[in-house]
Design a protein around this nucleic acid. Structure first.
Lengths: 183, 183
DNA sequence: CGACAGGTATAGTGATCGCTCTACTTTTTC
DNA sequence: GAAAAAGTAGAGCGATCACTATACCTGTCG
């Protein structure tokens, strides 16, 4: 049983992803979610809350998107980057939804918090996968590099095309893993 | 002799960089540039034109910022990344001004054009430096990787801190160059 | 001198937008 | 089956904002 709030959050996420955060007012969001204005405001008491709700929803969907993959070796660590490549192939290429939101509302503490939270979780994903492949080894620096490549691929995809960005990121990632003797 | 328009553009760049594109209206920009509203609109006939003017100004200042550096070897190629690190140490950490603008106005052709232009010039900077160090060699793919690291460092700096982002990007860049036998 | 290019100062305008309020209906729950 | 919870429809308010219009000043140059 999916709650009304979750359904609206999903629609908001889709809507913001498609048209950005500035180009549509609350009325347009209401129409996209196909609810009354009152109901929309009951679940998300301000426009800012709608943005936060959409970002939180994407945080969950993207985490699920990264799950799974090969269970050992470099491929286990690289899986999130491969999945990002898949993601970029599916959606319109508008960069990172979180960073776009943050760029637009740099003074909103609530938005900054959800962005930092999401990115911290993402960096942790790489740390955990590295810990599984080479347990006990200090891989903090390597995890940061993989995270940086994730961010770089996201931005480069809209500037130079998905394939180029994917190839460049994957090659750099493989080289970094190889230098740490992870194959 | 610096023109009035250039002086205003410089103020606009500073203003947008400090406070973002959404948080200040035309009146705030006018105050920052210390001109009358009429003069501001004479040089930049719309708010969008003010944004474009600010971005064009930064395109020039950042190109100048990257100039020079060591004249041979890997250090010649890496110089723009080093300079980006210096840049990130000096300015407030708000990501890439161009991508922030684009995120906010995804439908503006004029803004999209100046963003693409700037990023193309940046990618070319890496290509030219590679061509100088290993003339005749096909380094297209390597240039894309360095460009991706540039974008990644910019974004990662606001998420994980400047030093971490700088170290991660430089390490990945050195590994990529070493793999191509550039030292 | 006098024309004029380019500046200042600022009030006003029309449109948009976030949000609320009123009045009513449907669904759920005990 | 009644009450309460949750939904719909949509008009309207107050504030903001991009942009314009009016009226005036000033330094330069033929």
């Amino acid at each position: 049983m999916i709650s009304t709030k979750d359904r609206i959050a999903s629609d908001l996420e889709r809507s913001f992803a498609a048209l950005g955060f500035a180009e549509q007012g609350v009325e347009a969001l209401r129409a996209e979610a196909d609810v009354s204005l009152r109901t929309l405001y009951k679940h998300f008491p301000s426009r800012e809350a709608m943005i936060v709700g959409a970002l939180e929803h994407r945080d969950v969907t993207y985490s699920r998107w990264l799950e799974g993959g090969p269970e050992d070796g470099a491929a286990h660590v690289l899986h999130p980057l491969v999945r990002l490549g898949d993601w970029l192939a599916e959606v319109a290429n508008t960069g990172c939804l979180f960073l776009n939101a943050w760029a637009q509302y740099p003074d909103s503490a609530a938005i900054a918090a959800v962005v930092r939270d999401h990115k911290a979780r993402l960096a942790d994903e790489f740390r955990q996968r590295l810990a599984r492949v080479v347990p006990g080894q200090d891989t903090g620096h390597l995890a940061e590099t993989l995270f940086l490549l994730h961010e770089g691929m996201t931005q480069a995809a809209r500037l130079q095309g998905r394939e180029i960005a994917y190839d460049a990121a994957m090659q750099a990632a493989r080289a970094a893993l190889a230098a740490a003797n992870i194959h």
